[in-house]
Lab assay of single mutants.
Amino acid sequence: AEKTGIVNVSSSLNAREGASTSSKVIGSLSGNTKVTIVGEEGAFYKIEYKGSHGYVAKEYIKDIKDE
């Protein structure tokens, strides 16, 4: 099942092309942005936001229960 997560940073969080800190940054998400978690790979979540996919470090995403 898809989960919703909240970007848990004070400034912004980089979204990357792949599940690695050396992957190209494809965008950034500001704190408290809601994202859909579609998968996980190592220390990263694969997320969907406004129709695009990217990878973000798990430690900066807070899971919330689907309402």
Rank of each mutant, 00 (worst) to 15 (best):
A1S: 13
A1M: 14
A1N: 12
A1G: 13
E2D: 09
E2H: 15
E2F: 15
E2C: 15
K3I: 09
K3D: 03
K3N: 04
K3L: 10
K3A: 05
T4F: 14
T4E: 06
T4Q: 09
T4S: 09
T4M: 09
T4W: 13
T4N: 06
G5V: 04
G5D: 02
G5N: 02
G5M: 05
I6Q: 05
I6L: 08
I6M: 07
I6N: 04
V7F: 03
V7S: 03
V7Q: 02
V7H: 02
V7P: 02
N8R: 12
N8M: 12
N8P: 04
N8Q: 09
N8G: 08
V9H: 10
V9K: 08
V9L: 07
V9R: 07
V9N: 07
V9Q: 06
S10C: 15
S10Y: 10
S10W: 08
S10P: 11
S10D: 10
S11R: 11
S11Y: 09
S12D: 07
S12N: 09
S12R: 12
S12M: 12
S12L: 10
S12F: 14
S12K: 12
L13E: 02
L13C: 15
L13A: 11
N14P: 15
N14M: 14
N14F: 14
N14A: 14
N14H: 13
N14C: 15
N14I: 15
A15P: 04
A15I: 15
A15M: 15
A15W: 15
A15D: 01
R16A: 02
R16G: 02
R16Y: 15
R16T: 10
R16E: 02
R16S: 05
R16L: 15
E17V: 08
E17A: 12
E17I: 08
E17Q: 09
E17M: 08
E17T: 06
E17L: 08
E17Y: 07
G18V: 06
G18W: 12
A19D: 02
A19G: 04
A19Y: 04
S20C: 09
S20R: 05
S20T: 10
S20V: 04
T21Y: 14
T21K: 11
T21N: 14
T21R: 11
S22E: 12
S22W: 07
S22H: 11
S22K: 11
S23L: 04
S23Y: 07
S23R: 04
S23M: 06
S23H: 07
S23G: 04
S23A: 11
K24M: 08
K24I: 07
K24N: 07
K24Q: 07
V25F: 06
V25L: 06
V25P: 05
V25Y: 05
V25H: 03
I26M: 07
I26W: 03
I26H: 02
I26N: 02
I26Y: 03
G27N: 03
G27I: 11
G27Q: 04
G27F: 15
G27C: 11
S28M: 12
S28I: 14
S28E: 10
S28T: 14
S28K: 12
L29C: 06
L29S: 00
L29V: 08
S30G: 09
S30I: 12
S30V: 12
G31Q: 11
G31S: 13
G31R: 14
G31T: 11
G31A: 14
N32D: 08
N32A: 08
N32C: 15
N32W: 13
T33S: 10
T33M: 09
T33W: 08
K34L: 11
K34W: 09
K34A: 06
V35R: 00
V35S: 00
V35I: 08
T36C: 11
T36N: 10
T36D: 05
T36W: 13
I37V: 05
I37K: 00
I37T: 00
I37P: 01
I37D: 01
V38K: 05
V38I: 13
V38R: 03
V38P: 00
V38W: 05
G39I: 03
G39C: 07
G39A: 07
G39P: 00
G39V: 02
G39H: 02
E40T: 06
E40F: 05
E40V: 06
E40L: 05
E40D: 06
E41K: 07
E41H: 07
E41F: 10
G42A: 04
G42M: 03
G42V: 02
G42S: 05
G42D: 05
A43C: 12
A43H: 08
A43S: 10
A43P: 10
A43V: 08
A43R: 08
A43Q: 10
F44T: 01
F44P: 00
F44H: 02
F44M: 03
Y45K: 02
Y45I: 03
Y45D: 01
Y45W: 12
Y45T: 02
K46Y: 08
K46G: 01
K46F: 06
K46T: 03
K46Q: 06
K46C: 10
K46R: 09
I47H: 01
I47Q: 01
I47R: 00
I47A: 01
I47S: 00
I47Y: 02
E48P: 03
E48N: 10
E48M: 14
E48I: 15
E48K: 15
E48F: 11
E48R: 13
E48Q: 11
Y49G: 00
Y49L: 07
Y49D: 01
K50E: 11
K50W: 07
K50N: 13
K50Q: 12
K50Y: 10
G51Q: 06
G51H: 05
G51N: 07
G51D: 07
S52L: 14
S52Y: 11
S52Q: 12
S52W: 14
H53L: 10
H53V: 13
G54E: 01
G54T: 04
G54L: 09
G54I: 09
G54M: 14
Y55F: 10
Y55N: 00
Y55R: 00
Y55E: 00
Y55C: 03
V56F: 01
V56E: 00
V56H: 00
V56G: 00
V56Q: 01
V56M: 01
A57Q: 13
A57N: 08
A57S: 09
A57P: 14
A57Y: 11
K58T: 02
K58N: 00
K58C: 03
E59I: 13
E59Q: 11
E59N: 08
E59F: 08
E59V: 11
E59L: 09
Y60L: 06
Y60H: 09
Y60K: 07
Y60S: 07
Y60F: 13
Y60I: 02
I61F: 04
I61T: 01
K62R: 12
D63T: 14
D63F: 14
D63R: 11
D63P: 10
D63Y: 12
D63W: 12
D63Q: 12
D63K: 09
I64T: 07
I64Q: 06
I64D: 05
I64L: 09
I64M: 07
K65H: 11
K65F: 12
K65T: 13
K65E: 10
K65Q: 12
D66W: 15
D66H: 11
D66V: 14
D66G: 09
D66M: 13
D66E: 12
D66S: 11
E67I: 14
E67C: 13
E67M: 13
E67L: 14
E67K: 13
